[in-house]
Computed example of a mutant assay.
Amino acid sequence: MSNLKVTQNIADMCLECGLCMDACAFLPKVCDNPKVLAEEMLAGRYVAKTEVPYLCNMCSKCATVCPESLDIGNMIQEIRIQFFAEDLPLPGNIKYVKNQQKFVSSEQFFLAKPAPSGNTKRMFFPGCHLAGYSAELVDAAWRWLNQHDQDCGLLLTCCGAPSYDTGDKETYEKIVAQVKDAMASFRAEKLITACSNCTVHFRDFTDVSTVSIYEVMDENWDNPARDAGNWVMHDPCKSRTFPEMQQAVRSLLAKAGCQVQEPADSGADAKCCGMGGLVAYTDADWACKLAKERADELGGDLVTYCASCRQAMRPYDRYGLHVLDLLFTADLDDAKKAEAHGAADAKKSQLKTRELLSN
């Protein structure tokens, strides 16, 4: 099919070397090699195998080992967009993503505030997942920024990544337009992001400039260190191409008094927690299996800078915290044992976030 250019390129360029098959959980589950998968997609067999494109975490791990730098996730994204173009029935519970996107891009959640100085050069963009994890952490980060960056305003909404990952380009583009309009209304030039998924979407698919809050904090952190214990680092897979973000997180944690261990598959080799690419909406058991495998590999109390990663691995007796917990939470022992939120609790936290930030 002429509009599946990435898929055609993989069919043409794949060397069938097997390196990606060893590095990826998804590919061995669905095909003999990416070339075969691409040829099946080009032949339109996704119509009969609607779940296949929605089982990929789209974490780009494959591209890090491929001699041709082929990213199977890009092919999967192209197929998902084709799903929408053909108005095919979505597998599993993917359809519910649209309902969630409707809320986090609505006026009920949306909030924009100017910088304390009145000259808004940047805007703090916490994202909907961190807001769903802890309203108090978002509020604490916002207050810290108020003290250390008088030209930083606030923009609370969604980056549109779930719509993009679904293949719903129309909704995604509307959400991005809303973000850009809000920035333009305050004449802001940059977003300070807390989520690596938001960051990669803005960098790769828009002209929105970003810097992570961890880089901003690392440059300006002046809180006294405390004995924050030992933690195993889990880099979100979307941070793989942001070494400056990864380094800032480690530097910041050291300043805060944390001892951090490096597991396998970290840094440039970061591994998905299993929840990337909306896989849990298609096959929750498969996503949970991947999350448990990653939790077992970490082997200790984890620290990460992705709220979704922390939540994904908590059910498998893997205590853990978000980086912002280690910076702003008083009782770390209780916080690390907190159960993962369900969808209803996440929405309550998102509404509470808006309420706190409105004050």
Results as ranks from 00 to 15, higher is better:
E219Y: 02
E189W: 06
W221Q: 02
N220M: 08
V216Q: 02
C198Q: 00
C198S: 07
K190R: 11
T199W: 10
N197V: 10
R203T: 10
D222H: 14
K190P: 10
D227G: 14
V208K: 10
E189Q: 08
V208W: 10
N220E: 04
G229F: 08
S196W: 12
T199N: 12
N230M: 02
V200L: 08
M217F: 11
V200H: 11
R187P: 12
V211C: 10
D207P: 15
T206H: 13
D218Q: 02
R187F: 09
V208M: 06
S212P: 15
C198E: 00
E189H: 09
T210I: 08
W231M: 00
T210G: 14
S209E: 04
E219M: 06
D204Y: 15
N197Q: 06
D218E: 03
F205L: 05
D207S: 14
P224T: 02
R203D: 08
V200K: 13
G229H: 07
T199A: 13
T210V: 15
A194F: 12
A188Q: 06
V211L: 05
P224I: 03
T193I: 15
A228S: 09
C198D: 05
H201K: 11
D204C: 14
N230G: 07
T206Y: 13
N197T: 13
G229D: 04
Y214H: 08
A194Q: 04
C195M: 03
V208Q: 03
I213M: 05
S196I: 02
A225W: 05
T199M: 11
D204A: 15
F186G: 04
W231N: 00
D222L: 12
F202E: 03
D222M: 13
E215N: 13
S212F: 00
S209L: 06
T210M: 14
D204I: 09
T206P: 15
R203N: 13
L191E: 12
P224A: 02
D222N: 12
R203Q: 11
F205A: 02
F202R: 09
D207K: 10
T199I: 07
A228D: 01
N197G: 11
F186T: 07
A194Y: 01
N223A: 09
V200C: 11
I192S: 14
F186L: 10
A225H: 06
W221N: 09
I192K: 03
S209D: 05
S196Q: 06
K190F: 04
F205K: 11
A194M: 05
E189T: 10
V216G: 12
V211G: 01
L191D: 03
I192H: 06
V208T: 14
R187A: 11
T206N: 12
L191H: 03
V208H: 04
K190T: 08
T193Y: 05
I192C: 14
T206V: 12
F205W: 08
I213N: 01
F186M: 08
T199P: 14
N223S: 07
E215L: 03
W231T: 11
T206F: 12
A188I: 05
M217Q: 03
H201T: 14
M217C: 09
Y214T: 05
E215K: 14
D207T: 13
V216Y: 12
F186W: 07
R203L: 09
W231G: 11
D207L: 07
E215F: 04
V211Y: 11
I213C: 02
A188M: 07
E189A: 08
G229N: 05
R226D: 02
D204E: 13
I213R: 00
V216E: 03
A194S: 14
